[in-house]
Amino acid sequence: MTSNNKSIISYSFIGLFIASCSSVQVTEEAVYEDSIQSIEVSSKRAESSTPTESKAVLANATVYFEFDSFNLSSRSIQALKSITMLMQDNSEIEITISGHADERGTREYNLALGQRRAESVADYIELKGISRSRLTIKSYGEEMPMIQGSNERSWARNRRAEIN
């Protein structure tokens, strides 16, 4: 190591001497490398905390949205009406509303958009007299497409909120 350092010093002198009119960069660098640990997590998706047997009646529906929009269509409202009626008649039903986006746009904006879609559904159901405490809201953004594919048909199916 010491001999290397010496040779650098002599380089720098030569450098300055030859290039008296322009500057010479004389440097030393040591390659730096971090150690890396890899880990694995696996999770069973806990969709609902309610035991399945108590769910005599299942409230399931999927509603769809326009690009970059979280407004409910009249068709969506029809679907939500039946969900709301089911929940009014069966006070034990609790639902999870998962919002989704199509693959276009950025992942984080789509995560927020999916959440707004789930919120739109929740707002409607709450407006119809269902307690917010029976609703769990989350978003998967563009991460869980219903169908793969980069075309208008796939995108339309993927811009959705799933109720279950």
Binding site: V24, T27, E29, A30, V31
Partner: peptide, 14 residues
């Protein structure tokens, strides 16, 4: 002109 003179101290195997 020489415009840079440098030495890199590497890690063997890298």
């Amino acid at each position: 002109n020489k415009i840079r003179s440098s030495t890199v101290f590497g890690i063997p195997g890298k």
